[in-house]
Simulated assay, not measured.
Amino acid sequence: MRTQVCIIGGGPAGLLLSQLLHRAGIDTVVLERRSRAYVLSRIRAGVLEWGTVKLLESAGLGQRMHAEGYVHDGTYLAAQNRGFRVDFKALTGTPVMVYGQTEVTHDLYDARDAMDGVVIDEAEGVTPHDVDTDAPYVTYTKDGTEHRIDCDFVAGCDGYHGVSRQTIPASVLRTFERVYPFGWLGVLSETPPVSHELIYANHARGFALCSMRNANLSRYYVQAPVDDPIEKWSDDAFWDELRRRIPEDAADRLVTGPSIEKSIAPLRSFVAEPMRWGRLFLVGDAAHIVPPTGAKGLNLAMSDVHYLFEALKTHYHDGDAAGIEGYSETALARVWKAIRFSWWMTTTMHRFPDQTDFDQRIQETEIDYLEGSETAQRSMAENYVGLPY
């Protein structure tokens, strides 16, 4: 096969890049290691920056998102069972959208199908070749047969464990990492959410988050040891712990029920530089991971897609390579700001193993200062709703 851009990874970043490029008259092929059903079964983030909303609209994907998503004008922060609201819309003029990553991926698959986009699922052994030359190509195996795709560029949208980042020589690649000494125990339940906006709670027992997917599907988290066996956490144990950590009025309203999904996720901050080597570009989790505290993971992937799409469109339409040459530097400038914000949210809201009473009071005072300072709230709000592209 021959295409202009071969995209490795059929998650939301790879599919959105393919959709945008196709609409701009640029040919793509998407290679995905897993089946479509597997990709669509993954439970992931649900908060979209408004820049992500506008980017999805520009790809022709706004209709169901606006019909079924929930616009949130703010969020709640709490310390020691007492909370307050940060009004994003009043402080920045911009809200966020609650619309699950699974739904975004559904919409993207439907859009690619409607345009006869080439998405090859269950592609095994995907390997980029000669990406540091003018003639890169990608090989993969499907149903026991090896295939080759010649292309102009390779976009690595294949996540943290994918092959794309590993293609960049160790002598070129630099990585930066902070592993946090705890995880998030997450529960999905078919219950009405405790609040129409998210609640982030700091507590001496550990962090908690009340989130939602829709009017009868709630997503809740409590900080827990990352190596805890999931069997340790019965539904009753989870609900009891959540009640202890969130504001008292929210605990009184909490509707509990059987969990339909339960898992413990590790937290880390990770960045790989550069995000471009030759004709290979890293996009999303292939280049960076953030703890979920600041709701930045999917949104950072979307901003990478924006920068890469604009660079490739300018290259093909205008013969200008400046965007391609500057992709890594441009994307990383925004990535590091999001890494900083997610680190700040994480260190402010969580209980660390070696944390002293002094450290706990400092966290509580930080949150108290945030409650009383419009300037501090505006800084938090502009980072949470998403810095401009």
Rank of each mutant, 00 (worst) to 15 (best):
F309L: 07
A311P: 04
A78S: 15
A123Y: 00
L185P: 02
K142N: 03
P128D: 02
H147F: 13
I289E: 14
A224G: 03
E366N: 15
Y221V: 11
S303I: 06
D113R: 15
E197T: 13
G156M: 03
E241G: 04
R334A: 10
T256N: 02
A224Y: 01
S259F: 00
K142L: 14
A333N: 15
M65W: 04
R178K: 13
K89D: 08
G69K: 00
L17D: 06
A311W: 02
G74E: 03
P292E: 08
R82D: 11
R85N: 05
G117W: 10
I8H: 06
T365E: 13
G74I: 02
A322V: 15
R165M: 07
V96Y: 01
K142I: 01
D116K: 15
I168S: 01
D304Q: 10
S58W: 00
D152H: 11
V271K: 01
G9A: 04
W344Q: 12
H72F: 07
P258F: 01
K313H: 14
D320P: 10
G93Q: 07
M380D: 00
P128Y: 00
S18D: 14
S379Q: 12
P181T: 04
E261R: 12
R174Y: 06
R244E: 14
D320A: 09
D227A: 15
T52G: 09
V179E: 09
V126N: 03
N216P: 06
S269D: 13
P258E: 05
Y369F: 11
S164H: 02
L91V: 04
T94L: 13
Y99K: 04
M115C: 13
Q223P: 12
R340H: 12
S41G: 04
G69L: 01
P193S: 09
L308R: 07
Y160N: 15
P274T: 04
F352R: 00
K313Q: 14
L61I: 08
T145W: 09
G326P: 04
G46K: 06
M97Y: 12
L308F: 11
Q355F: 05
L370F: 08
V47L: 11
L48N: 09
H315L: 15
S18W: 06
Y137H: 15
T105M: 10
K296C: 03
D73E: 12
L217W: 09
A265I: 06
I260N: 03
R2H: 10
T346P: 01
Y76W: 15
G60Y: 05
N214G: 11
T52E: 02
R243H: 00
H22I: 11
H147V: 07
L17F: 08
L298Y: 06
L108Q: 05
L300T: 14
T175W: 07
E325I: 13
G323Y: 01
I8W: 04
E146H: 09
S263F: 14
G46F: 00
G372V: 06
M275E: 03
A224I: 02
T92I: 12
A322G: 08
S189F: 07
D113N: 14
A237D: 05
H315A: 13
N383R: 09
Y389S: 12
V271N: 02
P266M: 05
A265T: 06
L40S: 08
R85S: 06
E32T: 12
D228P: 06
T330H: 12
E103V: 03
R34Y: 13
N216H: 14
Y220D: 01
A331Q: 09
P225M: 11
G319A: 14
A201L: 04
G46P: 01
G186V: 12
G93D: 07
T375H: 12
F153P: 00
M1R: 12
R2Q: 13
